[in-house]
């Protein structure tokens, strides 16, 4: 019997689902042991019977959920998925850590609404949308802040290799594990130790990348060249089972899309700590909040207090 798979996407961009399709011909292999029974991006199964707002999803062995939880509707769907699926896979960094949309956690909802519905070029409005549209929750949450999650598959988006392997492991009843190392751990850069870097440069220029004097492929660690690279505090494996980290091999520093190395840690705190401990001035970058651009869920990013604690 193929395993029954259901998919839902919440506060998401569909990139995670496209990454599933990027398995290419392995997709056909996947369809041999997986039968997709609910997946709004790809098939017409509705959340419930017409007319009802009650979400009822078909029973499935595995539920893939992409995206974070930002509205009451997302929450309702997440809970319904939990109830109808034996295994829940948090697919992508939005689901595991909040992802890019959790950058919104630095602001109050009123400020978001106020701004987005009053941009230049928007006709004056006396109210924000409130009819039919779902209600915004106070923050953008990672999945496990609301439901229990069985497998975490971070990555923005996760590499198709990992998605394939995770589903395969469920099918074969094996445990699934992924890299516990950082992006740096398997980075081909040459590293000479601390070096003389005291400040960091902005990404206005590119790090040097050269074939080396002796024609050997090679480049010096981006951090040691003075560029912010989130490699040290980011979970490795984004290149899939065979390749090196994707941004690094595109010759550009990592920004941390696989989330922290240890699921619970704070990428920004770890990075600032690493920089400070190595004598690099952490105020040399204009801002560092975006070091949490992928993992601002779990309460790590909050609206900057309007009224100070008294």
């Amino acid at each position: 019997m193929p395993i029954k798979l259901a998919g839902e996407s919440l506060n998401a961009c569909s990139g995670c689902e496209i990454s599933i399709l990027d398995m290419g011909e392995r997709l056909l292999k996947l369809l041999e042991f997986v039968s997709i029974i609910h997946f709004p991006l790809l098939m017409d199964s509705k959340q419930g019977k017409n007319n009802s707002r009650i979400v009822k999803l078909p029973k499935a062995d595995v539920g893939l959920i992409s995206g974070s939880i930002k509205t009451d509707e997302h929450l309702e769907l997440a809970l319904a998925m939990r109830d109808s699926c034996d295994f829940i896979v948090a697919l992508g960094t939005c689901a595991t850590h909040g992802g890019i949309p959790a950058l919104a956690n630095s602001f109050h909802n009123e400020d978001l609404l106020e701004y987005c519905f009053n941009t230049e070029g928007t006709d004056k409005t006396d109210g924000f949308p409130s009819h039919i549209v779902p209600e915004l929750l106070d923050a953008c949450y990672a999945l496990d802040e609301h439901i229990n999650v069985d497998i975490f598959l971070p990555g923005c988006p996760p590499h198709p290799d990992h998605i394939f392997r995770a589903l395969q492991s469920i099918d074969k009843n094996e445990s699934f594990s992924q890299s516990k190392k950082s992006v740096c751990d398997n980075c081909p850069a040459t590293r000479d130790g601390k070096g003389q870097v005291k400040t960091l440069k902005r990404a206005l220029e590119l790090p040097r990348w050269h074939a080396g004097d002796d024609k050997k492929e090679g480049f010096k660690c981006f951090l040691e060249q003075g560029f912010l690279c989130m490699g040290p505090v980011t979970r490795g494996g984004c290149g899939g089972d065979k390749e090196h980290a994707r941004c690094i091999m595109t010759q550009i520093p990592c920004r941390g899309c696989y989330g922290p190395v240890k699921k619970e840690s704070n990428q920004r705190l770890s990075m600032l700590n690493a920089l400070a401990s190595n004598g690099i001035d952490i105020s040399s970058l204009p801002e560092t909040l975006s070091m949490l651009r992928f993992s601002g869920g779990h309460g790590l990013l909050r609206p900057l207090p309007r009224i100070k604690e008294s």
Binding site: K70, L103, A104, D111, L112, C116, T119, L289
Partner: peptide
């Protein structure tokens, strides 16, 4: 509604 227009405020443009 994810609020991209608002939440990129203060970020370096090159990012």
């Amino acid at each position: 509604l994810r609020g991209f227009e608002k939440f990129v405020e203060g970020k370096p443009a090159e990012e």
